[in-house]
């Protein structure tokens, strides 16, 4: 139900983002989706990629402050309003979305998000029969798209 996401601590300084991206490039890691907000001093750069565990260890060995975390990923129809419908289900249950980002993969909309209540979010996904992706599905999708 969840996928692995890299959370990378990035200083708001020229050259820090490209340093991380180059490490991933040299390791042959493919980015699937990533998001960073503009912040004053530092940001958390969140990355969904191929081989997240290996990517995590490589960054860690390079001395980059990085964490590996579980986030939800739902597959939505690529039509207007599908994200609103999905998120509303969580809101109705009193679950807050901590952050969210979206991307398209094989003509489907994928939303990646984290909530303040993982158990309840899991329950909501099951009860509403939402389509989610697991780590292995993501890898399969990524390979197809290469």
């Amino acid at each position: 139900m969840t996928i692995n996401q890299l959370s990378i601590f990035i200083e708001n300084k020229s050259g820090t983002l490209v340093k991380v991206l180059k490490i991933l490039k040299d390791a042959g890691i493919q980015l699937i989706a990533s998001a960073i907000a503009d912040t004053v001093e530092y940001g958390i750069y969140r990355v969904v990629c191929s081989e997240p565990t290996r990517a995590y260890l490589i960054l860690k060995d390079a001395g980059i402050p990085v964490a590996l975390s579980d986030v939800f990923a739902l597959v939505l129809e690529n039509t207007p309003g599908s994200a609103a419908d999905a998120i509303e289900l969580f809101t109705n249950e009193g679950i807050s979305i901590t952050y969210m980002y979206t991307f398209l993969l094989k003509g489907k909309g994928i939303i990646v998000f984290r909530t303040d209540n993982a158990d309840k979010a899991r329950e909501t996904i099951i009860l509403n029969n939402l389509k989610f992706i697991a780590e292995k599905d993501l890898n399969a999708l990524a390979e197809q798209s290469i």
């Binding site: 996401q5 959370s7 969140r46 860690k60 964490a67 984290r114």
Partner: peptide, 9 residues
């Protein structure tokens, strides 16, 4: 920060 311990701002 020597190791990122969280995904949470």
């Amino acid at each position: 920060i020597s190791q990122l311990f969280t995904d949470d701002y």
